[in-house]
Amino acid sequence: MTARRLVAVLLAAGCTAGAAGCGISPTGPISFAAAPRARLYAEQVYFVQDGRLHSVARSPATSPSVRDTPFPRAVVRVEGLDLLAAGPLPPEQDAGITTELPTGIRIFPAEQAGDELTLFLFGAEQPADPDQLSDLAVAQIACTATAARNVEAPVRRVTLRDKVSGHERGPVSCPVTVPERRG
């Protein structure tokens, strides 16, 4: 064994020892089990943040304003749409979350044909003309309705109809991916 070969062997041994390492080394993130599912329903409500759609998970019936708002009788209510109409909560507003929907608007389903849902818009203080809503506001409604839990069947397209004038806009689809409706 020449001196050179000896050095090579020692180097190889050193490398092996180095690769094995000792102690506990940091790792990158390792995906593990599926995320936990808490025993609650989270309604995905689409507001606006930095000019873009931003979904907020809400426990149903947490907004007292929704419960207190007078609704026409015999109206089927979609909780997510009620929460959307109620607007962001004060802490959410503090975080820069806004809505493009006019204050006091109410939204409830009129009829559903397959995956197309027609919604009534009803303005409390002013007329709720769909044409006067911004595109972002329409998207907010479409996405929240698509993600909503208590509608008859999965919704893909939404038509907005002014309850007063009967003026319609749509059908429109949610421009972003929303969680698939399950359960």
Partner: peptide
């Protein structure tokens, strides 16, 4: 490893019962 102490961190986002984000 923080200040020479090894830790294991487990992080996750809570989902609702249907698997939607919270």
């Amino acid at each position: 490893v923080l200040d020479g102490q090894p830790y294991v961190l487990a992080g996750t986002e809570v989902q609702d019962i249907r698997g939607q984000r919270t």
